[in-house]
Design a protein around this nucleic acid. Structure first.
Length: 461
DNA sequence: TACCCTTTTCA
DNA sequence: GAAAAGGGT
């Protein structure tokens, strides 16, 4: 009886535990990916769908053209697949979102009832999301103690070594490649690599050239100073193990390594709190007075389209729309602006990010939004409110990032530029660039006021 | 009083 | 994270 690999968010061959375990069965494994309409409608976006298609094409090449694509309900399609190919053992990795977990339980139930062994052998995380626990077995709620425990496990992790030679086999199915709605999608061809060779080349470049100055450079959005591996991680084109092993010895202070840990931390937070995409982890935020109504609606629209009059916010939001990406420093600034300056519900921001980010990942996205809103696990303290003008002066002093995404500022000479980035709304040239839709200092005080109301309510109750 | 640097404080 | 306050020239 044969074995099969069910590919999920692990669209690669190297450092893939499911691939290794299936190969160890002896027979050549079958390979399958299910395009599940439930997943597409719940969490996809046009740009991610196009990357997914390219990633599947790359994966198929890595599998020597042996990947089967099925379209439909995961459990139903996999049941068909194992029956038609005589499969006794299915290998796959687990995922952490509520929908993924539901699908896993449906697949496991269906296949086990058919006598097929289903092996969940890995996760998309460096340390599995259910493995980092306090001494008493309870989960961490604060990052630093999580990190101290996590790093011990992380250092013990080994990259998966595949046998020197291995082969896969093609399924016996009438239709071996049903792309479903992906058929009409154009494969991604943008700045983020889809091929393994390019992704590994990027990792090498990052480790050799960027990592030595990572602590300083990572904050400047005009500089190529971060790993830019989030997209490959999102689709499992690379596993965080591969990254960790390549960088950890060259990362004094573990500044970058701790970013990998934040990814794991937010994974485990979602695992423990499956309703956190909808509900603030800090329950008293249920009482937050978010702005609603027509003015709130138009402010949300201005934020989404990069027309707030705060150039760093606008450059970030336009980068997102144009490229499907945003530098992390700028993500914090625009997130703080939505929640603290516009008093709009963090869930609106999370939804917009998910519909445009190429690296849009439920756990990281929700964890980060709850962090910036101040309502999550170990999130930013209530008083941490970013000043978008000061952030611009600190992190894009020459305006190199701004000019890339706000072309209407291109005409400013150096002197006009210097006064522009310090300017308040009264001094801005409104003909070319929108005036500031709110006054930061005023809204900062308003945010602190509303936050203080929450703690009063919390105290009374 | 302008300015700079450091520390404190923020429900 | 940054405004405000403190401490100095």
């Amino acid at each position: 009886m044969g074995s099969a690999i069910w590919f999920r968010r692990d669209l690669r061959v190297s450092d893939n535990k499911a691939v290794l375990r299936a190969l160890q069965c002896g027979e050549k494994p079958f390979c399958v990916f299910v395009v599940d309409p439930k997943v597409l409608s719940a969490s996809s976006s046009a740009i991610r769908t196009s990357y997914l298609k390219a990633a599947l094409e790359e994966l198929n090449e890595e599998l020597d053209d042996n990947l089967t694509l099925m379209f439909g309900d995961s459990a139903v399609q996999l049941a068909r697949f194992v029956t038609e190919n005589g499969i006794s053992d299915l290998y796959c990795s687990r995922d952490v979102t509520p929908l993924s977990r539901l699908i896993e339980s449906q697949v496991a139930e269906m296949l086990r009832s058919m006598g097929v062994r289903v092996h969940f052998v890995d996760t998309p995380y460096l340390v599995d999301f259910d493995k980092v626990l306090k001494e008493d077995g309870s989960p961490f709620r604060v990052f630093t103690p999580y990190f101290k425990t996590w790093i011990k496990s992380a250092l013990a992790v080994e990259v998966v070594r595949l046998p020197r030679r291995y082969e896969f086999q093609s399924a016996k199915l009438a239709e071996r490649r049903n792309w479903g709605p992906l058929d009409k999608v154009v494969s991604y061809s943008g700045q983020f690599a889809t091929s393994s060779a390019e992704i590994i080349a990027r990792l090498d470049h990052f480790a050799d050239e960027i990592l030595p100055n990572y602590s300083e450079l990572r904050n400047f959005p005009s500089i190529d100073g971060t790993s830019r591996l989030s997209v490959a991680l999102k689709f499992g084109r690379i596993h965080p193990r591969t990254i960790f092993k390549r960088v950890v010895d060259f990362d004094p202070g573990l500044r970058f390594t701790s970013e990998l840990c934040w990814r794991d931390f937010f994974g485990s937070v979602l695992y423990r709190n499956p309703d956190s995409p909808k509900v603030a982890l800090d329950a008293k935020y249920d009482a937050m007075r978010w702005d609603t109504g027509p003015i709130a609606k138009s402010r949300l629209q201005a934020w989404k389209s990069g027309q707030t009059g705060y150039p760093l916010v606008d450059a970030g939001m336009r980068e997102l729309l144009e490229t499907g990406y945003m530098h992390n420093r700028v993500r914090m600034v625009v997130g703080s602006f939505l929640v603290k300056d516009l008093h709009l519900d963090w869930r609106l921001g999370a939804r917009h990010f998910m519909s445009h980010l190429l690296d849009g990942d439920v756990a990281s996205n929700i964890g980060s939004w709850q962090w910036i809103a101040g309502c999550g696990s170990d999130s930013a303290p209530f008083f941490r409110i970013f000043n978008p003008t000061l952030q611009l002066q600190k992190f894009d002093p020459e305006g190199d990032y701004l000019r890339r995404f706000i072309p209407e500022l291109g005409h400013l000479d150096k002197k006009a530029w210097a006064s522009f980035i310090r300017a308040d709304s009264a001094q801005q040239d409104r003909r070319l660039y929108p005036r500031q839709i709110v006054d930061h200092n005023r809204e900062r005080r308003e945010a602190l006021l509303r936050l203080s109301e929450l703690s009063t309510i919390g105290f009374v109750n």
